[in-house]
Simulated scan of single mutants.
Amino acid sequence: MTTNNPLASLSEAGVSIWLDDLSRDRINSGNLAELIRDYHVTGVTTNPTIFAGALAGGRAYDDQVRELAARGASVDAAVKELTTTDVRNACDLFRDIYHATDGIDGRVSIEVDPGLAHDSEATAAEALDLWKTVDRPNLLVKIPATKAGLPAITRTLAEGVSVNVTLIFSTERYREVMDAFVSGLEQAKQRGHDVTQIHSVASFFVSRVDTEVDKRIDALDGAAAESARSARGAAAIANARLAYAAYQEVFTSDRWQELATAGARPQRPLWASTGMKDPNYRDTLYVEDLVVAGTVNTMPEKTLYATAEHGSINGDKVTGTADAAEKVFATLRQAGIDVADVFRVLEDEGVQKFEKSWAELQTTVREQLAESQR
């Protein structure tokens, strides 16, 4: 890697590059440190699927599993210790970046149990517990942007805890997320918390929108199919660009300016699910076409390396694009595609996928604990 590469250009354009993956092997082997040093990686996001794969994929956790088994730890307690250990160690790796960027970057995310996605009180309680357990200032606790998640986001921020809001698909829900964020900071300020130390990102999912919309376009026929053809492969980028326009509106409002005067930081948009799922599209599409300063792009390793090798970063591709983005969705609606239903399906599927991964993670840990006790 040279300093003159697409990832350097992306960073210089004001986009924070985070890795959407974490494992003990990645930490212990020095790979994560290498990505920080050579690939401009300034943060990490995790989710239940990532941890399920990490625990099932190697022997790096064996010593800790044996120690947990000897203590008679329950499956849930073991899952918590195994995952928070990785996150704590990753936070320590990013400590210098955290300090150098005044807390903007150097962040590591851990998600609450997705089974709590529809229980506000339980979600908020677990978020606070994870914050205390990891005990690192550069942690972000991930809370899903379900209807029940919104009050949990506000409650968690009001306690001074930094939050990564995940599973956002629609601009309508995103506006609710931003309102929950601002409300949380207002309450934190009233309670005497230092709002300059409370950070948040809003993870707006990208690729899954194209996957679902393209599937619906392909199911059309006749005139409807013809009219919708131009929107194939365009909905995800358009959706993210509309989200950014909403972000600009909220964080220039009079309500926000009161908090900004007190030193509060805006909730940065984070482009998530940026790995390309359709081989017919450019594998770096969701990086190149979402360049705008003040955002985060969290990439799977494959997308990170692809961007480093052949990405083309050509400045801001988002600011001022809302009108063109609206036309994409007008085209979809005219063709008879229920856009609101697209987002409902994606949110439900997102929660279900993470619940399934969480169950797989529990099963893996249960089996490993039993093996250690033989």
Rank of each mutant, 00 (worst) to 15 (best):
N4P: 01
L7N: 06
S9T: 14
S9V: 03
S9A: 15
E12W: 00
E12F: 00
G14H: 10
I17N: 08
L19R: 01
D20A: 03
L22G: 04
S23G: 12
I27A: 07
G30H: 02
N31W: 02
A33Q: 15
R37A: 15
R37V: 05
T42I: 06
T45N: 10
N47S: 02
P48I: 11
T49W: 01
G58P: 03
Y61A: 07
E67F: 02
A78Q: 10
D86R: 03
R88K: 14
N89D: 15
A90E: 02
D92C: 03
D96C: 01
T101Q: 10
T101V: 11
D105Y: 05
V108M: 13
G115W: 02
E121W: 02
E126L: 11
E126T: 04
A127I: 02
L128I: 05
D129I: 01
R136K: 15
N138G: 12
K142Y: 10
I143M: 08
A145D: 04
A148L: 05
L150K: 03
A152I: 01
T154C: 09
V161G: 08
V161M: 05
S162Q: 12
V165D: 06
L167T: 04
E172G: 07
E176A: 13
V182I: 15
I198H: 07
A202R: 00
A202F: 02
F205G: 03
R208M: 01
D210A: 13
V213A: 04
D214K: 05
K215P: 02
I217E: 04
A225M: 07
S227A: 15
A228E: 00
R229W: 10
A234R: 14
A235E: 02
A236W: 04
A238M: 11
N239F: 08
E249P: 01
T252N: 07
Q257L: 13
T261V: 14
A262I: 09
R265I: 07
R268K: 14
P269V: 10
W271M: 12
A272W: 01
T274V: 15
G275Y: 09
D278N: 15
V291G: 09
G294R: 10
T298I: 09
M299N: 12
K302P: 05
L304H: 07
A306S: 14
A306F: 06
T307E: 12
T307G: 11
A308P: 00
E309L: 13
S312W: 08
I313A: 10
V318G: 09
T321M: 14
A324H: 11
K327G: 00
F329N: 04
F329H: 00
T331W: 05
T331Q: 12
G336S: 09
D338T: 09
F343A: 02
F343H: 13
R344F: 03
D348M: 08
V351Y: 06
V351S: 03
E355G: 01
S357I: 07
V365N: 06
L369G: 13
